[in-house]
Design a protein around this nucleic acid. Structure first.
Length: 314
DNA sequence: TACCAGGTGAACT
DNA sequence: AGTTCACATGGT
């Protein structure tokens, strides 16, 4: 109905090389709900509605400057694509992911939701996020989405109550981390000024955060675009590129070298194409929509808490 | 039913 | 230092 034309209270933004749906569905954010041909959610504490038609983004409720920053409109996607041209599989993944941008998410909500991520599918992380926002998020206005709850609000809750949001064993970690942040003992803003290795160590000091989750947070909230989070998908993909099987840390280092200066971005292209069944790997067939991945299995994976001197990317 | 999901941390050899 | 296991929940 309103497709291709702005309604009364909508702002309009040219957005070349941007795919709203792919960006939101790529497993980096879990707080947006598909609605009326667009998405509703919050940017910070501001309720926002977004929809896209072609190269035009229609937005409601938000300063376009913040919007552009949130979705990283300043990232040079062409340069990022070119950075992995020498590696054909990555390059074709990059071409398949035109318009996928790595966002600048608010620090706390990114930390909190990736604490919820271990051993959960993307759709389940969305469910947990929604349950938390519904139960604990403040009501900004009637009939608008609630923002992700502040650390203090979570900190004032209890583990049994958090478990009612379906968090399982993650409830304890979220609660403990929320308390550390609420008291000021841990300051997420401080990490922005630190180098990647030190920021990673700080994150790994939090309960429930190991190397993989820390890397996700560094990539999706702190703009460390060279960092490669190695989850089961990326481990399979990177593992299939080499004959020797290796541990998580080895795969991460291998990935950072192979995928170039924007390795984290390229990792996201590989992750998303694999998860949507579009990635073709040597010796495997792309999965169909209805079946599980046919990607090769990887030996049981162990995680490593970061230690001093273990500089993977300085 | 059994298996898997954007893993982590503690207790084992 | 390397291995093994428990940990909740929801979906196929």
């Amino acid at each position: 109905m309103t497709k291709g034309r702005a309604t009364a209270n909508e702002g309009v933004l040219e957005c070349p090389e941007f795919d709203l749906q792919m960006t939101i569905d790529s497993g980096q954010t879990f707080h947006w709900t598909a609605q009326q041909g667009g998405y509703s959610g919050c940017i910070g504490d501001t309720p926002v509605f977004l929809r896209q038609t072609g190269n035009v983004l229609y937005y409601r409720g938000i300063d376009p400057v913040l919007l552009k920053s949130y979705f990283s409109f300043d990232h040079d996607l062409e340069a990022i694509r070119e950075s992995c041209r020498r590696h054909p599989i990555s390059y074709s993944a990059a071409l398949a992911c035109r318009g996928l941008r790595i966002m600048r998410q608010p620090h706390w909500e990114c930390i909190a939701t990736f604490i919820l991520s271990p051993m959960k599918q993307v759709s389940h992380i969305r469910q947990m996020s929604l349950a938390l926002r519904t139960s604990y998020g403040s009501e900004i206005a009637i009939n608008t989405p609630r923002p992700f709850p502040n650390p203090a609000v979570i900190a004032n809750s209890t583990e049994p109550e958090l478990r009612r949001c379906g968090l399982g064993f993650r409830a304890k970690n979220l609660l403990a981390t929320a308390k550390l942040v609420a008291t000021g003992e841990f300051n997420p803003e401080k990490l922005a000024t630190m180098n990647t290795m030190n920021a990673r160590m700080e994150l790994c000091s939090l309960p429930g955060i190991g190397r993989k989750v820390a890397n996700c947070i560094l990539l999706f909230a702190y703009e460390r675009l060279d960092v490669v989070p190695v989850d089961v998908w990326i481990a399979r993909i990177l593992g299939s590129f080499r004959s020797r099987k290796s541990g998580l840390l080895q795969l991460e280092q291998y990935g950072e070298k192979l995928l170039g200066p924007y390795a984290g971005y390229v990792q996201q292209f590989l992750f998303h194409t694999a998860r949507t069944g579009k990635l073709e790997l040597p010796g495997t067939s792309p999965r169909s929509n209805s079946t599980r991945a046919s990607l090769p299995r990887v030996a049981k994976l162990r995680t490593i808490k970061n230690r001093k001197g273990l500089a993977v990317s300085a």
